[in-house]
């Protein structure tokens, strides 16, 4: 499941985190402590986080620093969450966002 996780890095070292279960579009996935939502999804092989409301283009993990808004998703019912900078918490319900978002 975590085959896309970076384990070897030229400069940084990563300690093995504990498992954090969450759900993505109804599927049960497992991230690691220290993950953001986007890093957990990336490690789980998820590349498409949603689709653009106007063009319908797939949107993915892009700037990874909370700048670009490419990774907006619906988290626990709240739309437009920048998942690249949102820490993963156990039991989070993460869903793809394909529109501008409807406030809860």
């Amino acid at each position: 499941m975590n085959s896309n996780r970076i384990l070897e890095h030229p400069i940084l070292e990563f300690s093995e985190g504990s498992d954090i279960p969450f759900s993505f579009d109804g599927k049960e996935l497992v991230g690691k402590s220290g993950d953001t939502i986007a890093s957990a999804l990336h490690a789980a092989g998820v590349r498409v986080l949603g689709h653009h409301f106007k063009t319908g283009h797939a949107r993915g993990f892009y700037c990874a620093i909370g700048n670009c808004s490419s990774c907006l998703m619906i988290v626990n019912g709240v739309p437009n969450v920048r998942v690249c900078v949102e820490p993963l918490k156990a039991g989070m319900v993460v869903n793809s966002q394909n529109d501008r978002g409807v406030l809860p």
Partner: peptide
């Protein structure tokens, strides 16, 4: 290439 990702 996409220039503005937010507004497509």
């Amino acid at each position: 290439p996409v220039v503005c990702r937010c507004e497509g």
